[in-house]
């Protein structure tokens, strides 16, 4: 039986590790999953607001037969000044078998993993990684495309502040996909190209979308702009996904968005709800992928 392990990010995983998660997710993709983690206790430690990730992990955990407890920053001892290490140690002492953590600080899950004995699952840390999202995005791509190898994936928008991008780039690069990052310099520094092999940067959406197999749109993260002023009109004019721009991609291109979406900003409604959109499917697949993550990290499969 595999050993319990933390999932802090996708950067340090091998392609085989990723494949293992994805295979397991396919097994979970069934109307009646087995309660493989019956009786285990999962703590969902959320320092940041979240709808889909939190509920997705919670449903995934419950479908596997676990007891779950959601701890949010505003209704716990965190408001009394307890450190993340002490909060983690408390949850461990209460018998948590695993902690799923969402935190505004990049690297916060690493701090927990260094200080605790139980597996830590990163549910999104600052601007660093969002590994469960990266895995569910790959899972969704593979429902529509034969292989990730050679796939042309354009990610457009607020790259700098996106943990989803970082996880996706690491994963896709391991499988030989071609990644094109697109956005204005203030949201996409040139250094982003050094994140992984085969990553290109484009400042023009038309160039980025041409012949794309996958288009991933990203929200401008107003909460992380830290004083940066952005001209919304200009942004929409240059980087919004419109039907005209979508035509530049391959006919069978799929449109993705990790959510939350701002309709009319980065994406037009008719595309978000259109035939090429797999945005809802991403959310659905999230539950299976997170079941796979929980099971694998707890060393049960």
């Amino acid at each position: 039986m595999p050993k319990p392990c933390s999932l802090l990010g996708l950067e340090h995983l091998s392609a085989d590790d990723v494949t293992r998660f994805l295979k397991l997710a396919r097994k979970m993709h069934t109307p009646h999953p087995k309660p493989l983690l019956r009786g285990k206790r999962i703590a969902l430690l959320f320092y940041e607001p979240s709808t889909r990730t939190r509920v997705s992990f919670e449903f995934a955990a419950k479908l596997l037969g676990t007891h779950t407890s959601v701890i949010s920053a505003d209704s716990s001892s965190i408001t009394k000044g307890e450190s993340i290490v002490d909060t983690g140690k408390t949850l461990q002492a209460l018998g948590a078998d695993c902690i799923v953590v969402r935190h505004p600080s990049s690297g916060a899950p690493n701090v927990l993993a260094r200080n605790l004995r139980i597996p830590i699952i990163n549910a999104g840390d600052g601007m660093h990684e969002h590994p469960s999202q990266g895995l569910l995005d790959a899972y969704t791509m593979l429902r529509h495309k034969k292989s990730l190898k050679g796939l042309r994936v354009a990610m457009v928008g607020d790259i700098q502040h996106s943990r989803v991008v970082r996880s996706n780039v690491h994963l896709l690069s391991k499988f030989g996909a071609q990644v094109i990052l697109c956005g204005p310099p203030e949201l996409l520094p040139d250094t982003a190209a050094a994140l992984a092999p085969d990553v290109k940067i484009s400042r023009h959406m038309e160039e980025a979308l041409r012949k794309a197999d996958v288009i991933m749109m990203l929200r401008v993260q107003k909460e992380r702009l830290a004083g940066l002023k952005l001209d919304a009109h200009k942004y929409v004019a240059q980087y919004q996904l419109t039907p005209e721009r979508l035509k530049l991609a391959k006919n069978d291109a799929i449109v993705m968005h990790p959510g939350p979406m701002v309709r009319g900003m980065e994406i037009q409604s008719e595309i978000a709800d259109g035939p090429q959109s797999v945005i809802e499917e991403q959310v659905q697949n999230g539950v299976y992928v997170r079941m796979a993550i929980l099971t694998a990290c707890m060393g049960v499969a």
Binding site: E11, M127, Q160, A194, A226
Partner: peptide, 19 residues
């Protein structure tokens, strides 16, 4: 440098830290 924790560059980008 408000909110910055390390030097700007590829490592700061990789770690998602403000440069």
């Amino acid at each position: 440098t408000a909110g910055s924790a390390m030097n700007s560059g590829p490592t700061a980008f990789r770690l998602g830290l403000r440069g």
